[in-house]
Amino acid sequence: MPLLTFVLYLVVEVAALVWLASTVGILWTVVTVLGLSVLGVIAMRSQGRRVLGELRAANGRRVRGPADAAASAGAVTDGALVAIGSVLLLIPGLVSSVLGLLLMIPLTRAVLRPVVARVAARRVETLVASGRLVTTRSRFRSGHVVIDGDVVAEPTDPRPQSTPRVIEGTVIDTTPEADGR
């Protein structure tokens, strides 16, 4: 299957280059391919920084409601789409460069965001149903004990305690004595 995909990619790229060269000429085809490469590098830098900033903001933000969760999910999806677009821009060829540039456009990513979210949800659902997705519980079945719990912060009293706490009890000394016992 990977070989068939690669051969299909080559056929599509060569056909696109032949079509463009026969339409506008070889010189303009070379200029177009080089221009797409330069434009792709510029787009990768600008959109990569933008998406990285969105991911940092989403990481620092506490999820308080559906709007915050959607913004965080959108940042992650945009990051994935920019990564795919960057890979497509790095692959030599006219069609892959055009597709990569399309993924660098924020409007295109906004249109594709729900589609990518649905595909990812279905993929995770399939992996969980088939048992191929490793969960925390299945990782610790070999004798480890996992205790679920919540961390609750103790209420802090800004006033200093007036009297120190005293703990009553008996001290039992279990150290060996100096006489050799």
Rank of each mutant, 00 (worst) to 15 (best):
G143P: 08
P106Y: 14
V30W: 03
G65W: 05
R141S: 13
S138A: 13
V76I: 14
V31D: 04
V82C: 08
R141Y: 00
L27R: 11
L81A: 09
V63Q: 04
V24A: 07
R113P: 06
R56A: 08
R139W: 14
I105A: 15
A43V: 02
L89N: 00
R64L: 10
A83V: 15
R109A: 12
R109D: 13
R62Y: 09
V98E: 03
S130E: 11
R137S: 13
D78G: 12
W28V: 07
H144D: 15
V128T: 09
V87F: 12
L90K: 00
R109L: 13
G143N: 11
A71H: 00
V87C: 09
G93D: 04
G85K: 00
A57Y: 07
T108N: 15
A117K: 11
W19M: 09
V82P: 01
R139H: 14
V128S: 07
P66F: 09
L36M: 03
A75S: 08
S86Q: 10
T136N: 07
P106L: 14
L133K: 05
R49T: 10
P114I: 06
Q47I: 10
R109G: 14
V95D: 03
V76K: 05
L99D: 04
V87D: 02
G48F: 08
A80Q: 11
A80M: 15
V82L: 06
R141E: 15
L133G: 05
A43L: 03
G65M: 05
G60P: 07
L94M: 10
R132A: 10
A75D: 02
V30P: 01
S97H: 10
G35H: 08
V87T: 12
S97K: 10
A83R: 13
R56T: 06
L127W: 09
T77Q: 05
G53P: 00
A75N: 06
N59E: 15
G40R: 00
L133D: 03
V115W: 13
T108P: 05
S138F: 07
L36Y: 02
A71V: 05
Q47C: 07
A73P: 04
I84R: 03
A43Q: 03
R137Q: 13
I105F: 13
G53C: 02
G74A: 07
R56K: 10
R49C: 00
V95R: 02
V24Y: 04
L88E: 01
S97M: 07
D78F: 00
I91C: 09
S138I: 12
T135N: 11
R49Y: 08
R137D: 15
A73S: 12
I42F: 12
L102N: 09
L39D: 02
